[in-house]
């Protein structure tokens, strides 16, 4: 039923506007899908793709947007987040754009969405095998911090010569007593390629390991697609005596929902200098709040 309704609507849209469903033309979509298949077949390997033009400037999530647009069908339900927040400018505009060119419905509920496009966060709620998480990637090359040459990083990936990255971590530990990388923590995918998990905090790294969901990474400006298929080993780089650890927020909890088991944003009030903490994942925060209110209402009755 929904499909029929959409087709009618789409014909109307097509008549009135001069672009294809989901904006990108079918040939370009097919190219992106082929590259996605290759990326899934070689977990963690960066597949070059054409990265066609969009009415969005490169560097504003065009990589993720192209993946979303080439995957989305009329039945899909889309959620877009930026730094965990459903309501920030980038997320709202991407959601609006995709809604306009496809007519799909959007949601803020992680559980409901079939495709989630995100920047810098993975939702707190565990995702299922029926969902796809699309990440916007600014710098796809994990080795760029240690090697400026693209030809050289390709050789390093080809020969699995990752000693430079390990040396970088060694130096970090020697200098600062611990690894100082906050976001973009390098991970080994399926025991082979070192991959940049896009700027997600260390908090989200364990969610990539043996997950149910397909993770797709798109870098529009750098023209690379890579993927983590479901049930793939994703291990952060760590030494035997210096283990990887996620961020901790000792004694802190979200000001709104009181949760202390989520990734918290620190908010500093400029006038008073007071620090407060809020959940980074706003829809998850809303959900917990709603549950609490429901409980209160029930207990009042």
């Amino acid at each position: 039923m929904r499909l029929n309704a959409w087709l009618q609507d789409h014909r109307r849209v097509k008549k009135s506007r001069d672009y294809n469903f989901a904006f990108i033309n079918e040939a370009a979509k097919r190219e992106i899908r082929r590259k996605i298949l290759k990326a899934v077949a070689i977990p963690g390997y960066q597949v070059p793709f054409a990265s066609p033009e969009l009415p969005v400037a490169r560097g504003w999530g065009t990589g993720g947007l192209q993946l979303t647009l080439s995957l989305i069908g009329p039945e899909d339900i889309l959620k877009v987040i930026d730094q965990g927040c459903d309501g920030s400018v980038n997320a709202v505009n991407i959601k609006k754009f995709v809604g306009q060119v496809t007519g799909v419905s959007t949601t803020t509920d992680t559980r409901q969405a079939t495709i989630i496009q995100t920047r810098h966060r993975i939702p707190e709620e565990a995702m299922t095998r029926d969902q796809i998480l699309v990440l916007q990637v600014p710098f796809p090359e994990a080795l760029r911090t240690v090697e400026p040459s693209e030809a050289e990083t390709r050789r390093m990936h080809g020969e699995a010569d990752y000693s430079q990255m390990w040396l970088y971590l060694y130096e970090d530990i020697v200098k600062y007593g611990e690894i100082s990388i906050g976001a973009r923590y390098p991970v080994t995918v399926n025991g082979r390629y070192i991959m940049d998990p896009s700027p997600i905090p260390r908090w989200d790294i364990p969610k990539l390991h043996l997950a149910e969901t397909l993770f797709l990474f798109g870098a529009g400006r750098e023209k690379r697609i890579y993927a983590i298929p479901p049930h793939t080993r994703v291990e952060p780089l760590e030494f035997e005596d210096e283990k990887f650890r996620v961020e901790d927020f000792p004694g802190q909890a979200c000001q709104r929902c009181g949760s202390s088991a989520t990734f918290l944003d620190e908010i500093i009030d400029e006038a008073s200098g007071a620090r407060t903490y809020l959940c980074s994942d706003t829809s998850h925060c809303d959900k917990i709040l709603a549950q609490q209110e429901e409980k209160e209402v029930r207990s009042c009755k």
Partner: peptide
């Protein structure tokens, strides 16, 4: 590597040989 510590320079060879223990 002139910018990397002397210990790091030596550790680089050990890393290449498969050592993953800072101590």
């Amino acid at each position: 590597r002139m910018a990397v510590s002397s210990g790091g320079n030596i550790a680089e060879r050990l890393i290449m040989a498969g050592c993953r223990h800072i101590g």
